[in-house]
Every structure is written in structure tokens, then in C-alpha cells.
Design a protein around this nucleic acid. Structure first.
Lengths: 200, 200, 200, 200
DNA sequence: CATGAATGAGGCTTCATTCAT
DNA sequence: AATGAATGAAGCCTCATTCAT
């Protein structure tokens, strides 16, 4: 994964530090139990400096969610760009999402926790992005159906379901275990999602 | 679904009203943006009364999450109690979770949002319960592996993954759509989870 | 002056105490240098209590200015109600404004200081009221012109000018002197305003 | 009015620009709601530059009030210097104050708003100056009384009252009207102040 | 001199919780 | 048991001021 996909690494130094500090604390406590003070302190800057980079604490949240989703979308889209077969595309997309999670544990513990919070308020954009991400799955599955590679299923259900399967399984490991058996997760999910859990 | 499984219906009148009011507001805003005032008001009681039934706002959250998880566990466990075959058990469990979600939309929008928040603090119990629920899946899948009905997969991954698939697909419909096509969701998830998305 | 005209005396106990505390401090420092903390403390209540009675510190200011202007208008209007001759009316109005100032030194030191602050923002109403007060003078003077008792002058100029003369002269005494020679002020202003400063 | 009396025009370039920017903003918002940032920006300099010319925001206020009062005093004193008769002197003084207001609308809107704020703090000097200005009126009136041109009145009351009459009438026009009928104001004030409002 | 990023003291406001009635 | 006025700890944010460049 080149710098292009590194969360925050293309931001100004201080802004990146603030983002990283925030994510690190948010993955431990929740957004609401974290104070701006703490974030600034962890980033090694003054409290006022925070407000040179973000309009408010809420906007930081919005920015972080946005940022991660945009990068994830970029990353996954890039990874499937030159793949032709729907099945291969879906494999690649699964690989990519899991890799991405694996590269950014803190971020995704935070992400999974806070992504559900945004239904109303200013930040409808988050929802749009989450939808845009799931749309990647939807498009691949639709393509697979058209080419008779995949069965006819309810595309919305299965796309969001796949996203849920990957996210929750990843979180499960991130939250409850010290290891993150990327390969196992990858293989098990793919095996079941492509061929089902039934033997023979 | 008998009263036994109805959330809050076996509580004292006012406590039940407070729970229902809370869930209704929480599904709209998040826990943190909801005030005790609002909950009491919606329940039609005074603010002080709230504290006759709950030690604190946090304890209400804990109680609600707990309550829903316990009932879900009861409900699913009861539903599979007399089923013998692992595959039938898993089908039944999937049916039950989806039914349960369907009966309690507000609750599960809230549940999905807040369940991730609890890692530290007093409320480890929530985690235990969530784990206990996933353990139901784990046990069924283990049984299925033992009887050669199911393939060998990473059980933790696939159990939490199934939970994620069901939860996120359900939420997807609950959040983004006015309808909730229970039967479609059920069939699509089962078809993919049991047989995979690949045709032939 | 009956209770009817007493500033704040017809408010709830705590609200009145907060108003009185605020005015007392505002007359010493300015609004901006006074904290809500101080006001609450001087009123003998908790800081949070302040917000049970006023939406914000700004709204307190608005309320205080409003309140004083309304009462002044009431007081002056009542005092001239049964007077027929324009000259007598104007005398009575001058008497009343000076009496009112005299009864509420703190308030008017505060009033004169803050009344100019409100041009934009929510509180256009203040301006309307100040205008409404000056309109009392305008109407009397117009009447006096019509009945040939008064000369033809620019009514807006002379009405606001009279208000300024009374206000600034009163403030002068309130700010720079320990005494407030009500009678002297009254007589001197009237003598000059009615007959001019020129002898003979 | 030669440069001698132009506010700020004999200051260094940047200092003058800062003063003008400040007055312009202050006449719109109040001192307290204006930030140093805004002033610097409007003056077209950096925020740090502000502090090369003024020790603090407070000192700017002090300087502005001071500056305007000193110039006003100079201007009025100069204008009456060669006038002999008290009545003519007073007329000239009134002319001058009104001219001065007219030349510096923004400044006087600001001045009238902020002049009352200074009772304690470092800036007693402001009060002294305001007093010094009113003393000009006091001296003329005293002289007029001695020469029997003027009646015996309470000199402090009438001097501050005249200042108030001129200031508030001027502000009235500046704040509430797009025009400033200098001649009308001048004539009406003089007519009333010298001869009274009563006809015959 | 000029700048503007960095700072943190300080103030407003919210809201969970208490308690007298 | 029920209430809601009272409380004050806690947190977000502003902005005057500093200082390295």
C-alpha cells in the first residue's frame, strides 16, 4: 500500500498528528468521552491549535469518517480496476477491504463504532460515502449476475451483508484478540461467501 | 412471539415506558445526544422519576443493551431447542434473528449503533452477552463441522461474520428504506451463506 | 412610584434577584467584563440556575434593557395621561424621567452604557423601544407646535436632544458625584429648555 | 478643517490605517465583538503588526477615545479662541462640535457607544478628557453668567446637558437616518438652547 | 519590521444528578 | 412514589497575545 492510501499521510504535519491522536484515543474510548484537550495533548499541540485545523470537534469526526471512507473506496476501486472477471473482482475487493482494515486497526475500531451515529445533522455525506462503498459490491455482484457467474440474489441485501460480514468479523478479531489472522479470515469468508458453508 | 419475548413488556409500567421512550429517541439521535429530560418527557413522567428506576443514564443504556441481548438469546435458543440437524438449527437461528430485528426496528437501529461503544467501563457484561449470542452460532457451526454437514472454517470468523451479515443487512434496510423485505433478506442470506454466491 | 413601576419587583423571586445582581455589577463593570458566574453568585444562586431563567447572557442584557425601557415608557405615559397642556405635559415628562433615573441609579448607569450597543443582532426591539420613548417627546412637541405653544423646530432633533440632555446630565451626576441634586437638575433643564439660556 | 484636526492623519501610515479600520468596524459592531484579527485584516496588515503599534486591544480603545477627544478639544478651543462674547463663543462651540461629528460619523457612533465604558481600569484619562471637554462649555457658561448674558443655572447640569443634547441628537441622525441635516440640527439646537422652546 | 501559526486562560453553556416538597 | 427547580462539574470554543521565522 503506497503512501497514496495511507490515512492522513498526505495532510499537513499537524493536522495529520491531530487525526492520528484522535483515532488512537477514539479507538479506546468513544468520541463522546474524548475531550479536545486530550486529543491536542496527545498530538503534542495546544488546545487552540486544534481549532486552527478543525472548526469543531464534530467536524473532526466528520472529517475522519469521510477521510477513511474515501481512501477505502479509492483503494478498493484501484485494486479491482484491471480485473475482468466478477468473481476475481469480488475476491480482490475482499482482499483489499481486509488489508485495509489490517493496516488501520485503530481506525476501523473507531470507524465501526462511530459510523452508525450519523443519520441526521450536517454530515449526510458520510452516509453517501458508506453507500458509495457498498455500491462497489453491488456493481460487481450485478455484473456477476449478468454474466451468470453469480446467482440471482437480492443485491442490496447481499452487498451490505458482505460488508457487514467483513467488518464485524474483522472487528471481532480486533476487539477480542491480540492477533489478527488476516489469511484465515480472508479464506474463510471467501470460501463461505462463494461456495457456502455446506459441505458437498 | 409471545409476551415472553417482548422487550420491556414484563417490566413495571413506568420502567417499560421509560425504556420504550429511550429506545425511540435513541434510534433517532444517539445516546449521547439524548437528555434524561427528553426521555422522561416522552415517557410522560418527571425527570426525577427516571432516577427511581435507573441509577444513572449509563445504567439505562446498559440495561437496554442487556435486556435486548438477553431476550434475543432466549428467543433464538428457544427456537432451536428442539431442532436436531445443524443446518436446520442454523436456518432457524437466522429466521429468529431476522424476525426479532423485524419486530423491533427502533431497538436494533439503536442496538447496532451503541453496541460497539462498550469496551471498558462497568459494562463488560454487554460484551459477554454479545459473545454469548455469537457463541450460539459458534456451537451450531461446530456441531455442523463435527457431523460433516458443514465445512471446516474458522469458526469465530464465520460466526461473527454471520452475525455481521444479518445485522448490517437488516440495518441497511431499516436505515435506508421504508420497507423491510423480511422474506427476501432471509432467503438471500440463507442461499448465499449455505450454498455460496457462485452459480453451479 | 408604586410597585407597578419598580423594576423587576413583579418578577419571580429568583429572576428578580438575578436581574438586580446583574444590574448592580453591570453598573460597576461593563456587561462584557461581567461573568455569569459573578451574577449568579451575587444573586445567591448556582450558575446553572441562571440558565433556568435566561436563555443566555445576551438574553439577560436584552431583557434588562427592554424591561427598563418598557417601565420608563409606562411610567412617563401614565404621568402625562391626564395632563392637557403641551407645556405641562412636557414638564411632567421631564419630571418623570428624572424621578425614574433617580430611583434607579445603578440601572441607568448601566442603561446609558449598554443602550448604544444594540444595532444589529437579534435585539432590534431595544431600538424600537428607545425610539418609542423618544416618540413620546415627539408627540408632545408636535402637539405644542400645533397649538402654537411651542416654536417650530426640527422635532426629531429636539426630541432626541432633550432625551440626551436629561440622560447625560443625569449620568454626569451619577458618575461623577456622590450627590444627585434632583431638584436643581430639574429646574435648570426646564428653565433652559423652555426659556433658553439667554437672559432677558 | 485642516489636516491638523483630521483624526489619525498625522500618524504613521500603518498606525493610521489600523485606527481607521478599527473605528470603521467599531461603529458597526461594538469594541468587544470585534477581534484584533478583523482590525488587522481590514487595515491590510498582519495580526502581529497590530502589536507593533499598540500594546493591547484595550490600549487601542484608549488611544482612539483619547485621540478623538483631544482633537475635538483642540478644534473647539481653536474655534472660539478669538471670539469675545460668551454667546458667540457658545454658538461657535456648538458649530464646531456638530461640524466635527459631521466630519467623523463612524468615529462618533463608536465614541458615543464606548465612552461610557470607562470608569475604572487604567483609563481614567478618558474621563479626564471628557471632563475637560465639558469644562469648555462650563467656562463659557460661567463667563456668560458673570457678564449677565446668561441666566444663573446649574452649570454642571447644563454643560453636560448641552453635550448630551448635541451628542444624542447627532447620533440619532447618524444611526437612524441616511441623511445628516447639519444645518437643521444646528439651528434647532441653538434656537432652543438659547431662547427656549416656548413661543413668545 | 512584518507575519500568522501556536497558545491557553477564560467564559459560556449543557446536563446528569440531587433533594426538598 | 413523583416531581422539577437547583446545582456545578465538565467541556467546547474564542481570541488576545506571543514568538520564531
Amino acid at each position: 500500500m503506497s503512501t497514496k492510501y495511507e490515512l492522513f499521510d498526505d495532510l499537513e504535519n499537524k493536522k495529520a498528528r491531530l487525526c492520528k491522536a484522535a483515532v488512537s484515543i477514539f479507538s479506546d474510548k468513544s468520541f463522546n468521552r474524548t475531550t479536545v484537550q486530550e486529543i491536542a495533548q496527545k498530538a503534542g499541540v495546544g488546545k487552540g491549535t486544534f481549532y486552527n485545523y478543525f472548526d469543531s470537534k464534530e467536524r473532526l469526526l466528520s472529517f475522519l469518517l469521510d477521510c477513511g471512507t474515501v481512501k477505502l473506496i479509492e483503494y478498493v476501486k484501484d485494486s479491482i480496476q484491471e480485473v475482468m472477471e466478477p468473481r476475481d473482482k469480488l475476491e480482490k475487493a475482499i482482499d483489499s477491504q481486509l488489508e485495509y482494515f489490517n493496516k488501520n486497526h485503530d481506525y476501523f475500531v473507531f470507524y465501526l463504532r462511530e459510523m452508525w451515529s450519523y443519520r441526521q445533522g450536517l454530515e449526510e455525506q458520510i452516509f453517501k460515502l458508506k453507500e458509495e462503498y457498498i455500491t462497489i459490491f453491488e456493481n460487481i455482484i450485478k455484473e456477476g449476475e449478468d454474466s451468470k457467474a453469480f446467482k440471482n440474489v437480492d443485491i442490496e441485501t447481499i452487498s451490505s451483508g458482505l460488508f457487514g460480514m467483513l467488518s464485524v468479523a474483522s472487528s471481532h478479531w480486533a476487539l477480542f484478540s491480540s492477533e489478527f489472522p488476516l489469511e484465515n479470515i480472508n479464506q474463510s469468508v471467501k470460501e463461505v461467501f462463494f461456495n457456502g458453508i455446506l459441505r458437498g
